[in-house]
Amino acid sequence: MSTFETHTFDTAPKASKPLIQGALNAYGFVPNLLGTMAEAPAMLEGYMTLAGIFDKTALTETERQIILMTNNRLNGCHYCMAAHTSLSQMGGVPADVIDALRNDTPIADSKLEALRQFAITINESRGWPTEAQVSSFIAAGYSRQTVIEVILGTALKVMSNYPNHVAETEVDAAFAANAWTPSAAHAAE
Score class of each variant (00 low, 15 high):
residue 18 P to T: 09
residue 18 P to N: 03
residue 18 P to W: 00
residue 19 L to F: 10
residue 19 L to T: 04
residue 21 Q to G: 02
residue 21 Q to V: 04
residue 21 Q to R: 10
residue 21 Q to P: 06
residue 23 A to H: 01
residue 24 L to I: 05
residue 26 A to F: 13
residue 26 A to V: 11
residue 27 Y to W: 12
residue 28 G to L: 06
residue 29 F to T: 09
residue 30 V to H: 03
residue 30 V to R: 00
residue 34 L to C: 01
residue 34 L to N: 08
residue 35 G to V: 07
residue 36 T to N: 12
residue 37 M to Y: 08
residue 40 A to K: 14
residue 40 A to P: 02
residue 44 L to D: 00
residue 44 L to M: 12
residue 47 Y to D: 03
residue 49 T to I: 08
residue 51 A to D: 05
residue 51 A to N: 14
residue 52 G to C: 06
residue 52 G to W: 14
residue 53 I to C: 09
residue 53 I to M: 13
residue 53 I to H: 15
residue 54 F to N: 11
residue 54 F to D: 13
residue 54 F to M: 14
residue 55 D to P: 04
residue 56 K to W: 03
residue 57 T to V: 03
residue 57 T to H: 05
residue 58 A to Q: 09
residue 58 A to M: 03
residue 59 L to K: 04
residue 60 T to K: 08
residue 61 E to M: 11
residue 61 E to C: 06
residue 61 E to V: 15
residue 61 E to N: 15
residue 63 E to A: 10
residue 63 E to Y: 04
residue 64 R to Y: 04
residue 64 R to P: 00
residue 67 I to P: 11
residue 67 I to F: 02
residue 68 L to M: 14
residue 68 L to K: 15
residue 69 M to E: 04
residue 70 T to A: 04
residue 71 N to S: 14
residue 75 N to I: 11
residue 75 N to S: 14
residue 76 G to F: 07
residue 76 G to M: 10
residue 77 C to F: 03
residue 77 C to Q: 07
residue 78 H to N: 14
residue 79 Y to N: 09
residue 81 M to S: 03
residue 82 A to Y: 05
residue 83 A to G: 04
residue 84 H to C: 12
residue 86 S to P: 01
residue 87 L to H: 14
residue 87 L to K: 11
residue 87 L to T: 14
residue 87 L to F: 15
residue 88 S to L: 10
residue 94 P to F: 01
residue 94 P to Q: 01
residue 95 A to G: 11
residue 96 D to L: 01
residue 97 V to K: 06
residue 98 I to Q: 00
residue 99 D to V: 08
residue 100 A to M: 03
residue 101 L to T: 10
residue 102 R to M: 02
residue 102 R to G: 00
residue 105 T to M: 05
residue 105 T to K: 12
residue 107 I to P: 13
residue 108 A to C: 04
residue 108 A to D: 09
residue 109 D to K: 02
residue 110 S to E: 15
residue 111 K to D: 07
residue 111 K to P: 12
residue 111 K to H: 09
residue 111 K to W: 03
residue 113 E to P: 11
residue 114 A to F: 11
residue 118 F to I: 10
residue 118 F to Q: 07
residue 122 I to K: 10
residue 123 N to H: 15
residue 125 S to I: 08
residue 126 R to M: 07
residue 126 R to A: 07
residue 126 R to N: 09
residue 130 T to I: 03
residue 130 T to Y: 08
residue 131 E to W: 00
residue 132 A to W: 00
residue 133 Q to R: 02
residue 133 Q to E: 15
residue 133 Q to W: 05
residue 134 V to P: 09
residue 136 S to P: 10
residue 137 F to Q: 08
residue 138 I to V: 11
residue 140 A to G: 05
residue 142 Y to I: 08
residue 145 Q to A: 10
residue 145 Q to D: 12
residue 147 V to R: 06
residue 147 V to N: 07
residue 147 V to D: 03
residue 149 E to W: 03
residue 150 V to T: 13
residue 153 G to A: 10
residue 153 G to Q: 09
residue 153 G to E: 04
residue 156 L to G: 08
residue 157 K to S: 11
residue 157 K to E: 13
residue 157 K to R: 05
residue 158 V to G: 06
residue 159 M to W: 12
residue 160 S to A: 14
residue 160 S to E: 05
residue 161 N to E: 04
